[in-house]
């Protein structure tokens, strides 16, 4: 089974993020970057599936040369090939989905797994656009019934269940009040939630091998995609600082305040 995954470069959440003076972007100095954690879960899931249903795992990332770092990470985890869409400048979610669509048409994977969202803009749209434009089925927010402390997780059992003859996959999604199980006919698009798996570390042999794995370059122009953003950022601002809490003398005061001030009961 051939699987395509994404490996977006995002700001490390442990870096201190500041809005720049123009209010249109963030200060990049001294920032650290990493692979989008939801994409890392997608890579892990693909590797687990590939261990049971052999086939290539292709990692895709879009951006300048710096995204090689994230592609190498996916390769070091075990992906077999990387595709780098060389692109500088702004890109909106539709542009990303259009580029991925072209890569999918070239690579012809049986399954596309990507993070449900990336932790920089938290848009949560690319997977949905991609499935729609490919005309494929989609299951968003893939999770699983087992906990991350379970034996199955220790044994790296995939959460996505491949049907007989690898014609379908079943995806478990967390919904209010329980779990929802969807069956998709392949090829299909799956987006990952946080509790699908605990990604493996890139091992030292994996890191060394990653250097010699193929990394193919593409460009928006070469793929024939117009990536001019349809969405422009007008203003970025930091969330308001949280106000200090208050102490109440007794339960009665708390209940009154919850009723009259917070209006939650």
């Amino acid at each position: 089974m051939k699987i395509l995954v994404t490996a977006k470069r995002v700001e490390d959440p442990e870096s201190k993020i500041k809005v720049d003076a123009a209010g249109k972007g963030i200060v990049k100095d001294g920032l650290k970057y990493k692979i989008n954690p939801f994409d890392e879960i997608a890579v892990e899931e693909a590797l687990r599936l590939a261990a049971k249903h052999p086939g290539d795992v292709v990692a895709v990332s879009i951006g300048g040369k710096e995204v090689h770092e994230q592609l190498r990470h996916a390769l070091a985890m075990g992906a077999t090939k990387a595709v780098w869409v060389n692109h500088e400048g702004p890109l909106d979610q539709m542009g990303v989905a259009r580029l991925l669509q072209k890569i999918v048409e070239k690579e012809k994977p049986d399954l596309v797994i990507l993070g449900k969202q990336s932790i920089d803009d938290d848009q949560n749209q690319v997977g949905q656009y991609l499935a729609e434009w490919l005309g494929w089925g989609q299951a968003t927010f893939a999770s699983k019934a087992d906990s991350l402390d379970s034996e199955n997780e220790k044994n790296k059992v995939p959460g996505v269940i491949v049907g007989d003859g690898a014609k379908t996959v079943d995806v478990i999604r967390e919904v209010d009040g329980g779990l929802n199980r969807l069956r998709l006919t392949l090829p299909a698009v799956v987006t990952t939630d946080l509790r699908l798996n605990q990604p493996r570390y890139a091992s030292l042999p994996g890191i060394m091998k990653a250097k010699s794995k193929p990394l193919e370059e593409q460009t928006a122009q070469g793929l024939g995609v117009d990536v001019a953003p349809k969405i422009t950022v007008t203003k970025l601002s930091m969330p308001p600082a949280r106000k200090a809490g208050i102490k109440v003398p007794d339960v009665a005061t708390l209940v009154t305040k919850l009723k009259t001030e917070a209006k939650v009961v």
Partner: peptide, 14 residues
């Protein structure tokens, strides 16, 4: 080099 830094990320995670 790049591989040392990649390995550093692995150890950091661990």
């Amino acid at each position: 080099g790049e591989e040392h830094e990649a390995f550093r990320s692995t150890v950091k995670q661990f």
